[in-house]
Write a protein that binds this DNA or RNA. Structure first.
Lengths: 196, 196
DNA sequence: TGAAATAGAGACCGATCGGTCTCAGTTAAG
DNA sequence: CTTAACTGAGACCGATCGGTCTCTATTTCA
């Protein structure tokens, strides 16, 4: 409880905490009180530092999406081969939906809240989704160039299939108790890649 | 504007109208005023007939899901072969997300609102999602029995891949202007079925 | 020591929402 | 005609929410 002229709390840690809550509960279901409790700051500090709930969410969303994109690209770049990299990404998604615990994907979870009547936010989410598809596509293109998948396979179509199917798993998985669907989809996708 | 001791409006038509609004906008984003305007009835009539917004949504959701399930089973049953039936289902999803216009799937759109802290509604949605997967699985089992797909293909895994990928398309497609992703996923799935 | 900057606590406001209630008008049945 | 059932219109209520504001306390710097 220190005080003083400089920031008395860590804005980055507060943003991280806010991201966790938004991720787990979604934008609308998250109240100011929950955010303040998780961030450990007062109402006034939130508005002085982040402007509004909406702007706070935008920053949390960007943080989430860019971290996820970097994670994907890191896995693909660090794998023994491009195809193994894509498979490794799929494996991490099975464990975690779309990025952690059983919270699904922060993009998919919140898309429905904004796509109607909020073109700015929808465009932001679209950009993040496209970045994920692009990372997968590049990995598959390299896999095709390396002869790991057939020459007439379509990296773009496959990337979208992978991204969409796990987006679906992430959304529906929040309502299911076990991970049976996630495991089924992972098996099916691995088989697709092995025969592609 | 007729009046009298019997129901003066058609509850079934009102429910249908409510379903359309819930489908297009989602549960939380739909206000009582919008529902009343779409249903063409007064506040009192809604509560007398349907009980509450929540109960109205439950009935609308059941109507949507059971209609979708029947549609799928009808397409598969009426096709020239089981595999062609499954392909036909995929084709209708490409045109329509998960059941109509550009509204996505009523299940996926509203899942995020209820999966946290509303186990009753989550279970209801889970049941509907399972029914769709089951219809696809049965079609694929018949296709395998007919020799249309390989003997060692897994109908359950494939059904979940198909259902999940289009659930993902339905969710993300609401934020995209064109149907490029839907077409990509359709192409990828058809190729999977042809080589399965 | 005193001004400035920052913080927590919390009162307060306006808007919205779901839900209840009253009232007037209309139609069918007895 | 009377009564009962049903309707639309809309006032009304309690709760919640995002956002603003005030007050006080603390720390740094001149």
């Amino acid at each position: 409880m220190t005080r003083g002229p400089e920031k008395q709390f860590d804005p980055d840690a507060a943003l991280e905490a806010a991201m966790e809550v938004f991720w787990a509960k979604g934008y609308e279901a998250t109240s100011l009180a929950e955010l303040l409790a998780a961030m450990g700051i007062a109402r006034k500090s939130l508005y002085d530092t982040f402007g509004s709930k909406r702007e706070l969410f935008e920053r949390a969303l960007d943080r989430y999406a860019e971290r996820e994109r970097a994670r994907l690209e890191g896995i693909i770049a660090g794998a023994t081969s491009p195809l193994e990299g894509v498979k490794a990404v799929i494996a991490t998604w099975r464990q975690a939906g779309c990025g952690g615990e059983r919270k699904g994907c922060m993009l998919g979870t919140n898309l429905a809240h904004f796509e109607a009547g909020d073109e700015t936010m929808a465009a932001r989410m679209r950009r993040h989704l496209d970045a994920v598809e692009r990372a997968l596509k590049h990995g598959l293109e390299r896999a095709r160039a390396a002869g790991e998948i057939s020459e007439d396979a379509d990296p773009g179509d496959l990337a979208r299939l992978i991204a969409s199917s796990f987006q679906g798993v992430a959304v529906t998985g929040r309502a299911r108790k076990d991970g049976a669907v996630a495991r089924s989809v992972e098996r099916a996708l691995l088989r697709v890649l092995e025969t592609a």
